[in-house]
Design a protein around this nucleic acid. Structure first.
Lengths: 259, 259
DNA sequence: CCGTGCAGGTCGCTG
DNA sequence: CAGCGACGTGCACGG
């Protein structure tokens, strides 16, 4: 790993030209201004920030606050580095969409270059697809007597998550959503109408989600559709909720909220 | 700024306990394993990563690739740092939703602590609300003779972005969307039906967006609704598109794509 | 504090 | 390559 504190702009430019477009992780901390132009247009005045260029060319400019970067480029097709009067300019261009991020550094407090090794994959449980699978393996989590007919059934209106029949053999359209909103209701309604055209007769529509706001539930039921809740523990056997109720002895709370 | 290369776990723990819960930006580069439990559950095996704790307590764990962090916590309510056998553990707990991120460090290549100063605000132009305003100021960007009646008009089906009358005095419901999809069409249709109930007579529905896929446009027109495109230059006077057509002499392309 | 909808969303999968 | 939908979406704004 290479790390230079308070590099001259020449040193920094040399390092950047050497490593920016290769599979290295490059970090530059310093005082900068950032412009973006593309799908929208943005301007960010001088401030101290952390620039991160990742090994797949992704570029992030993080300010001292917030989860999200102030500016970014998910994939850069071409970098440009120049030394201007009293500063260093880094431009990151991207095609499709055509966009450019320009970072003007006034001061650089340090710069590091490294190749990080990380082969491991992130394993996540609890996505929507896990709910689909849980339903297929265990249809009674929806309701007793349910029989799954088809998953990902294609219709003119799109794909139905789960298509089934209930204990009375009535067709059931199930829409699974982690975070349902009003549009989810419209979408389900659209599916039910579509299936109604195809199969005639009564069709039930069920929205399955971890939770549903009261207003959306009303909106749903006005349309003759139903809601069924699903718990994480039902779909992830090993799941245990986080218990924050008693705090440990050794923990300490941020003072961020105090000012 | 404080920067320690290859700190001992004791040194690191001391620094973390001192600064994690205060308004400092803390960065730790090293080999770690990460677990998350909350709305879902995830496990990330050993790998070299960059941990960033921001001044508002936001926590990011970035791998060497991708725009998005591997794990994160947008707001941390309580940190915990412990030294275990041959390692250092950092836990970040959050309430609402109850979630915890645990980072187990096996090796730390460096750690920095700093207070970044960044008062400047990010100014972005080109959001949906900018399009609303552009329409209000310049109704002809929708079509000649249009008169805006009301913005954000409330109906039972939600808020209509722009409510207007055309040159023949026919009511027009305009839905503005930066990234329209099928649901946008349904939403617009709902609004038109709602307005139809209220005002009777012919009602036009217009979807205004930077672009619209052909299939969605068909879907829209099947329902008797219309599409009007909007250009960035129409809503941001100073906007100039990025011209990537000819590459500069001094730029250089990433080799990332080559392997 | 919760509910609601936008985002330069990003990302991954499928046709 | 574009279309389409999920996301531990995050985030800002309004009730």
């Amino acid at each position: 790993m290479e790390l230079i504190q308070n590099p001259s702009f020449e040193e920094a430019a040399e390092l950047l030209k050497e490593y920016l477009s290769r599979e290295y992780t490059v970090q530059v901390n310093g005082l900068c201004t950032v412009n973006y132009r593309g799908r929208a247009k943005s301007k960010l005045d001088r401030g101290e920030r952390i620039l991160l260029k990742k090994q797949d060319s992704a570029l992030l400019v993080h300010g001292p606050e917030n989860y999200q970067p102030k500016n970014w480029q998910p994939e850069v097709d071409s970098f440009k580095v120049e030394i201007e009067e009293e500063g260093l300019v880094l431009k990151a261009l991207r095609r499709n969409p055509d966009e450019v991020v320009e970072v003007f550094f006034d001061e650089i407090s340090f710069i590091t270059v490294d190749q990080l090794v990380d082969k491991s994959e992130l394993k996540i449980a609890g996505h929507e697809v896990d709910i689909h699978e849980a339903i297929e393996e265990n249809p009674e989590i929806v309701e007793d007597g349910l029989k799954v007919v088809e998953r990902e059934k294609e219709t003119d209106a799109g794909f139905i998550d789960v298509f089934a029949r209930d204990k009375d053999n009535v067709y059931v359209v199930i829409e699974v959503k982690r975070n349902p909103d009003y549009n989810t209701v419209l979408q389900l309604q659209r599916y039910v109408e579509e299936i109604d055209d195809e199969f005639q007769g009564d069709i039930r529509g069920i929205l399955m989600a971890p939770k549903l706001s009261e207003k959306i539930q009303d909106y749903l039921e006005e349309r003759g559709l139903e809601f069924v809740g699903v718990e994480m523990a039902q779909i992830i056997p090993s799941y245990e909720a986080v218990d924050n109720s008693q705090k440990g002895l050794s923990d300490f709370k941020p003072s961020h909220s105090l000012e």
